[in-house]
Simulated assay, not measured.
Amino acid sequence: MTEFLPISTGFVWPLAVAIAWVLGEIVHRSTNLPRISVYSLTGVVLSYAQTGMLPRPSEGEITLIANMAFGLILFEFAYRINLRWLRLNWWLAASGLAESVATFVLVYIVVGMFGITGLPGLLIAALAVSTSPAEVLRVVNEQRSSGQVTERVLHLAALNCLFAVFIFNLIVGLWSFQHSGSVWSAVSNSLLVLAASGALGVAFGYAVPVLLRKLGILAQDATLAFSIAVILLAALAQAFKISPILATLGFGLMVRHRREALSPAQRNFGALGDLLTVLLFVFIGASLAWPSIVAGADIALALLGARFLSKLAGATLFARFSGTTWRKGLLTGVAMSPMSVLVIGLMVQTRSMGIDLMDQLAPLATATLLLAIFGPVLTQLALKFAGETSEPQEK
């Protein structure tokens, strides 16, 4: 499509963001569906593999901007995680670990029934564990949700995320070793990536609050200062080919752990965060190619069924032990449906290492598309049934 338009490829991404935002507002106001579902679907329709308006997301600087957008969300998400609560309520932490392991094992068994075994099956299983912080936090903020189910979803999503990133990088390291025969290549693509990413995030978590305190602005509006820090961190992570996901999570967790007060910071990082969120979800949709989506449809449905069942069972079975009701445990499991942004983020990370796995993991494309659209809807419904939303009336 772009060859018939008298515009440069540098213009099509802003145009796609504008289209997605308008459609998101129209659909949300008329149906109350999450805006991010519309953003992702718009990206799918406009992508290189469908209408061809957008180039491949791996081309140009758009990947860096998407990583920055994801970094802002991950920082805010990590800052909301109370590690002390997980230590005190160890049943909640145990439920997150048990559910993660169960999801990994069950999904691997299911895809193995379709002939996907070995490293591809392990990678799919690892990615299926993840509950994407981006969709969950966006729905929570959009619905102004608060309460027991909301907090449990956020904390369990964090545990899922850390488990998925850790296992995924180990498997990528094994993949590198099998294809290159180099032990150094395997270690540098797995353990060193994990260590360097975490160390960079922790370093920012120590240094940035100290700098802001010396400048005398930590107690003022922290939105701009931490936005710049997160954007710089994401850029550094991409430049050094380490994980921006783990780095920004570590940054947010360290700031929270040191009990730095960020209450003046705006929800979603204000207008900047809202703008980048639209671009991020368009980017996610544009990363998916229709041929891969069709090719993996049957396996993806079985994969999603196994994933949904294990998360539902894990959150429900541990509900009473961790101090809540069976009903709230069930709703927590439903709310943990989204996974798309984290999956694409990890796939983009491996591409930067010279490893392109998307074509070999076709079922993930279908699962990612379905959950990019329906995952936020399920999270929204679960929070509403829990009575924890207070979205303002649209005018």
Rank of each mutant, 00 (worst) to 15 (best):
Y48H: 13
V38N: 01
P55I: 14
N67S: 14
L54R: 02
Y48E: 02
G43I: 03
E59K: 13
P34W: 04
P34E: 09
A49L: 03
I65Y: 08
P34Q: 05
S58M: 01
N67T: 00
A49S: 13
R56W: 06
I65C: 01
Q50D: 10
E61C: 04
G60N: 15
S40M: 11
L41Y: 02
P34F: 07
I36Y: 08
E59G: 11
R56T: 04
T51P: 11
P57N: 09
S40Q: 03
S37V: 04
L33W: 10
L54H: 04
N67M: 10
A66P: 00
G52A: 05
Y39A: 04
R56C: 00
Y48C: 08
Y48L: 13
S58Y: 02
V44E: 01
G60S: 15
A66H: 05
S58H: 06
L33S: 08
L41A: 15
S40K: 03
L33V: 14
N67A: 12
L41N: 07
V45L: 12
L46S: 07
P55R: 15
G52R: 10
G60V: 14
E59T: 14
G60D: 14
L33H: 08
E59Y: 10
E61S: 09
R56H: 15
P34N: 01
T63W: 06
T63H: 01
A49Y: 01
P55W: 12
Y39D: 00
Q50E: 14
V44M: 11
S37C: 11
G60T: 11
I62W: 14
V38T: 10
L64H: 14
L33P: 02
V38F: 02
S47V: 02
L41R: 05
G60L: 11
R35W: 07
L54P: 07
V45W: 05
Y39K: 12
R35T: 11
V45E: 05
P57G: 00
P57L: 03
G43C: 08
T63S: 01
P57Y: 05
R56A: 10
L33A: 10
A66V: 12
G52N: 13
Y39E: 06
V45R: 00
G43P: 09
L41G: 02
R35I: 08
T51K: 12
L46T: 13
P57C: 06
L46F: 15
E61K: 08
A66N: 05
T42C: 05
I62M: 15
M53P: 06
R35E: 07
R35V: 10
A66S: 13
G60K: 09
L41I: 15
T63G: 10
Y39F: 15
R56K: 14
V38K: 07
I62S: 02
T42E: 03
E59R: 10
L41C: 07
I65V: 15
Y39W: 14
L33Y: 12
T63C: 01
Y39S: 07
A49N: 10
M68D: 05
A49F: 05
I36T: 13
I65W: 06
G60E: 11
A66R: 06
P57W: 05
Y48K: 15
Q50I: 12
P55T: 08
Y48S: 09
S37E: 12
P55M: 11
E59C: 00
G52F: 13
M68R: 04
I65P: 06
A49T: 10
